[in-house]
């Protein structure tokens, strides 16, 4: 009996200093990322009220070969999606006989900064919208075209193209728009809520254990600044809500719908968690 008590006590002692456990191995790489001659901010001081001191891009947690692919725009397979998006820009669709270009003639200028500042408040819908939903809004309201199905190749390509126009710009949300702050609060709550039979929250993996290996995967801070990302394993662009759904599914929970209120709240909050990191779209992942 006494022995057990001592054991239990020593367990508690061990866990009262979790830092000891998390320091084990595999810190983010100490490297700099330059794309098309622009230096990316892959490491930066966290904004006020953030649980971390320092924010690290997911790029720093990847293998050297994967990192090299993102560094070279000619090698980056995600750039095919960006190019496809550039072509779609001028394709006329819908009853109004318009394309994106009809309203935004110079995407390199008109779209600069957009990818660094979304989600933004949509006063009509009274909820935050991301790039995908903004594209749909333009299609429906200005082009008389159907919204895209979630994860349609065109949706991912156009989103990647738009975000790519902000390459290197620091992520910064204006939380004073509309009720965005309330959605941030809701997203924060979700981030720390354990789900599924495995009883895991986003924070369990990406806050408490980033830098460590979970099977073959090096856990990052779960930053969103590179989405849509190109995944080598799946040989295609992966949207942010696809990634969110995958992480939730892996807790053995029911999977939330893409663009649902919950996932929009989560996107708002998680985007804020990456404040100051550069937009890297299309980032490359294993």
């Amino acid at each position: 009996m006494t022995k057990k008590v001592i054991l239990a006590a020593s367990v508690l002692a061990l866990f009262s200093s979790p830092v000891m456990l998390t320091k084990a191995t595999a810190d983010p790489a100490d490297a700099t990322l330059t794309i098309d001659g622009k230096e990316m901010t892959v490491k930066t001081a966290a904004p006020e009220g953030h649980p971390f001191d320092t924010l690290y891009s997911g790029w720093l947690y990847r293998e050297p070969e994967t990192r090299a692919l993102e560094e070279d725009s000619f090698e980056n397979p995600g750039m095919f999606g960006v190019e496809q998006g550039a072509e779609l820009w001028s394709v006329v669709e819908g009853t109004a006989g318009k394309s994106c270009e009809s309203c935004h003639a110079e995407p390199e200028v008109d779209m600069k900064g957009v990818g660094a500042s979304f989600p933004k408040w949509d006063a009509d819908a009274k909820r935050p919208i991301n790039i995908e939903l903004q594209i749909d809004k333009c299609r429906e309201e200005n082009m008389g075209a159907e919204p895209y199905k979630f994860d349609a190749a065109e949706q991912k390509a156009l989103t990647a193209f738009i975000k790519h126009q902000s390459l290197g710009m620091p992520v910064k949300l204006d939380l004073s728009q509309g009720e965005l702050q309330t959605w941030w609060d809701r997203g924060k709550e979700l981030y720390y809520t354990r789900t599924g039979q495995l009883n895991l929250s986003c924070s369990n993996c990406h806050e408490d254990h980033n830098g460590q290996m979970i099977r073959a995967d090096h856990l990052s801070q779960g930053q969103v600044n590179g989405f849509p990302t190109y995944r080598l394993k799946q040989s295609k662009l992966i949207s942010l809500h696809n990634r969110f759904r995958g992480c939730v599914r892996d807790t053995r929970a029911e999977i939330p719908k893409a663009f649902s209120d919950d996932l929009m709240a989560l996107e708002t909050y998680v985007t804020w968690r990456g404040t100051g990191l550069s937009v890297e779209t299309p980032a490359v992942r294993q």
Partner: peptide, 13 residues
């Protein structure tokens, strides 16, 4: 998505 996760995750129901 990641094989890891799928792993962790004790995938197939």
């Amino acid at each position: 998505m990641t094989s890891t996760l799928r792993a962790l995750v004790l995938a197939s129901g």
